[in-house]
């Protein structure tokens, strides 16, 4: 049993190493590409623009629910004036980066894994190689660079809309004074909190998009089945692995930041 456990741990470490090299190769390949701006714009549209509505919606509902839950907890201690602090810090430090990453994985990551898997099965990736085009730089590189731009922005959108959602339930519905709510938000959030959130969003972005792209790109090697089933398996594993890695990385980064 210990041997099996050891083997599994080693294979996870090996795979993480492969994913890191894959991501680095894609970033390096991107800067050797022609027409980088056009490719980057398309990738920003795919990851940033398309994910914006879902990130904004989830941000709003997260804020609304947090406003409700925290109000009824805080009111027991007569501390409902701290609602702004609780909502803002929870969102900026933890929930914003984590939930944004999970939403982007669900929306763009799974689509990316499927698309790359289909391109692999359809020999489009081989075709790029025969045309002397670096497939990593061409297909994955722009998406990784777009991630570095989009993830912090989407996280900021999530945080802001979430804090506004907390205001809607706390102040508009449950009559916490609006001035107190916003004052607590501005007073309690420090630059270090925002910085920590952005560090997380960058790490989560690179991790999740690398994992999703790696799974799709290597469908022929990694999936247990060929063809369509292989693609669906790659997409599923990409989402599961990315989500688990987001939570694991969140714990690690938080323990370093605190």
């Amino acid at each position: 049993m210990i041997r099996t456990l050891g083997r599994s741990a080693l294979s996870v470490v090996f795979e993480l190493g492969e994913i890191s090299l894959f991501g680095l190769g894609a970033l390096r390949g991107f800067f050797a590409q022609r027409g980088r701006l056009a490719k980057l714009t398309l990738a920003i549209h795919e990851i940033g623009v398309r994910c914006f509505p879902i990130v904004a919606t989830v941000g709003l509902f997260t804020g609304l629910v947090m406003g409700l839950q925290l109000y009824y907890t805080l009111v027991k201690f007569g501390a409902e004036s701290a609602l702004g602090t609780a909502v803002a810090l929870s969102l900026i430090r933890e929930l914003g980066p984590v939930l944004t990453a999970l939403m982007v994985v669900g929306q763009a990551g799974s689509a990316m894994a499927s698309e790359l898997g289909i391109q692999r099965n359809d020999e489009q990736i081989d075709a790029l190689q025969t045309m002397s085009i670096d497939p990593l730089g061409f297909l994955v590189g722009p998406r990784l660079v777009a991630t570095l731009i989009c993830f912090p922005i989407l996280t900021a959108v999530f945080d802001l809309i979430g804090i506004f959602g907390g205001y809607l339930t706390g102040s508009v519905l449950l009559n916490v004074d609006a001035g107190v709510y916003w004052n607590r938000v501005f007073e309690s959030v420090s630059w270090a909190d925002v910085q920590g959130g952005y560090i997380k969003s960058l790490v989560f972005g690179l991790l999740t998009i690398s994992i999703c792209a790696y799974r799709g790109f290597n469908t022929h090697r990694k999936a247990s089945f060929p063809g369509v089933r292989g693609v669906s398996e790659s997409a599923t594993r990409a989402v599961v692995w990315s989500s688990v890695m987001v939570l694991a990385a969140d714990y690690l980064i938080t323990s370093f930041l605190l």
Binding site: D122, E123, Q124, D126, M131, S132, I133
Partner: peptide, 26 residues
Amino acid sequence: SYMFQNNALFDSLSTFDNVALPLREA
């Protein structure tokens, strides 16, 4: 050059862009 069994054309690119791809990129 390699002509694949299933053509391996890029669905999101037009005929012109598919043919131009190796010239543009390589």
